[in-house]
């Protein structure tokens, strides 16, 4: 940390002011719209929009496991990238030894990525798309993975 505490605090103070102004502006915009906007009630408006068809079922549907998987991947990979940030900024100090270590790190990361790739965790195609492409390539093993 190059700058002393005092300057940092001063800078942060400006940031806080800026943030407050921005927030105030947002509130004014929303509040203004709330006050100025017209109001009316009708039955059809109170239904979820589903392209003109009457809504069926609950909106809280169960969604594909892919999304959960992705969330987990993200958490992990994003964390790993934090280490790379640290390395990037300290590249000079870390030197070649640091480079080797980072290379190993990245290598492992890439291997893990390859692993995910090959077990099909990164495949977002739908089942039908997958089967189609399999037929085209006439290799069936890939489909069985996930």
């Amino acid at each position: 940390m190059q700058s002393s505490e005092a300057i940092l605090a001063n800078d942060l103070f400006q940031l806080i002011i800026y943030f407050c102004v921005v927030t105030a502006m947002t509130v004014v915009m929303l509040g203004g719209a709330y006050l100025l906007g017209q109001r009316h009630r009708s039955k059809t408006v109170d239904e979820p929009f589903e392209s003109g068809i009457v809504a069926a079922g609950d909106a809280h549907i169960r969604f594909s496991v892919q999304f959960y998987l992705l969330a987990i991947f993200f958490v992990i990979f994003d964390m790993e990238s934090v280490f790379l940030f640290a390395w990037a900024v300290a590249l000079q100090e870390a030197g070649w030894l640091g480079f080797i270590e980072a290379a190993v790190f990245i290598g492992v990361l890439l291997t893990a990525l390859m692993y995910l790739w090959l077990i099909g965790a990164l495949d977002w195609r739908t089942c039908r798309q997958r089967i189609d492409s399999c037929n085209r390539r006439s290799t069936e093993e890939r489909c069985i993975g996930l």
Partner: peptide
Amino acid sequence: FLLILTLAAAEVGVGLGLVL
């Protein structure tokens, strides 16, 4: 702190998988 973050990430990763 970085290490803790990583741990937390991994822990949550596994945790979410299990919760699912």
